[in-house]
Simulated scan of single mutants.
Amino acid sequence: MSLQSVRQFFADKAPDIVILEAETSTATVELAARAHGVAPGQIAKTLSLRVGEEVVLVVVRGDARLDNGKLKRAFGAKVRMLDAERVMALTGHPVGGVCPFGLATALPVYCDESLKAYEEVWPAAGDIHTAVRITPQRMADLVSARWVDVAKLPEPEAAVAQPGA
């Protein structure tokens, strides 16, 4: 059902976008990056969050973490992750395949500014073996997302001093 709702979403709103199906699981950022041959940051992970009584989806780049201070400033309240059962019930997608497309329930979607570092990102497509290749702006436009700054990017790896250098 989940993959089918995403297929229907793209058939209706963006028939030029192709759902890519991998032979291996793409349920984690690392698995998805390996399966699609892209950097982990290009994987657009969709997180399901409770803000007070409201549930929202936040799409961030795969190598970023949510920043609690930024979340509180952006949403005005403490934010909590939903459990897998609630995610499935509200989105219609299993954890590892959650995306902002073809949702079972209309939910507000936010895209983190960190996604703009890439020309293309690879969000899941409703299943743990699927993704789509899309520009961050087009993804935001298709799901009427608002842009927010709620992510903490990974620290650049410190240069390792070479002995004798």
Rank of each mutant, 00 (worst) to 15 (best):
A117E: 05
K72N: 04
R73F: 04
G69H: 07
V59E: 00
S25L: 12
A89T: 10
S114H: 10
S48T: 11
P94Q: 12
G126Y: 02
R34P: 04
L115H: 02
T135Y: 06
L115W: 07
A159C: 09
E53Q: 11
A161C: 12
R86E: 15
R61W: 03
A44H: 02
L107H: 05
L153Q: 01
V6W: 07
I128F: 11
M139F: 06
D12T: 11
M81W: 10
V38I: 03
P123T: 13
D141C: 08
L115D: 06
A32P: 13
I134Y: 00
A35I: 15
I19E: 07
T28G: 14
D67I: 00
L47A: 11
E30S: 14
V150S: 01
A117D: 04
V58F: 06
V18C: 10
S144C: 09
V98H: 03
K45A: 03
P163E: 04
P108V: 07
I19F: 01
I43P: 10
I19W: 02
C111K: 14
C99N: 12
D16K: 13
V60L: 14
T24I: 15
V56P: 03
L142W: 14
E23W: 14
A22P: 07
A125I: 08
D127E: 11
V6F: 09
I17C: 07
V51Y: 01
C111E: 13
A39Q: 04
Y110M: 11
G76V: 14
S48A: 08
V109F: 12
D112S: 07
A11D: 15
A159Y: 12
R73M: 09
V150H: 01
L153I: 00
L71P: 00
V51F: 14
G96E: 00
G69P: 00
K70S: 00
R7I: 15
G126Q: 09
G52C: 04
L49A: 07
N68Y: 10
G76P: 11
A27F: 11
A158N: 12
L57C: 01
D16T: 06
L57P: 01
L20K: 11
A104I: 11
V150A: 02
F10H: 02
A117H: 10
M81S: 12
R133I: 09
L49T: 01
D149A: 11
K70P: 00
P123N: 05
F75S: 05
Y110R: 08
V132T: 04
R65V: 12
E23V: 13
L3W: 13
Q137H: 07
A145N: 08
A131G: 10
F9H: 09
T46W: 03
I43Q: 02
R133D: 01
Y118V: 15
Y110C: 08
Q162K: 10
T28D: 15
E157S: 10
G96C: 03
L71Q: 00
Q4T: 14
K116A: 10
T91Y: 02
P15C: 15
H93L: 06
D63I: 02
S2P: 05
I134T: 01
A140S: 09
L49D: 01
I19P: 01
A14H: 05
R50V: 06
Y110L: 09
L49N: 03
F101K: 13
W147S: 10
K78A: 14
V98M: 06
R65L: 04
A11Q: 14
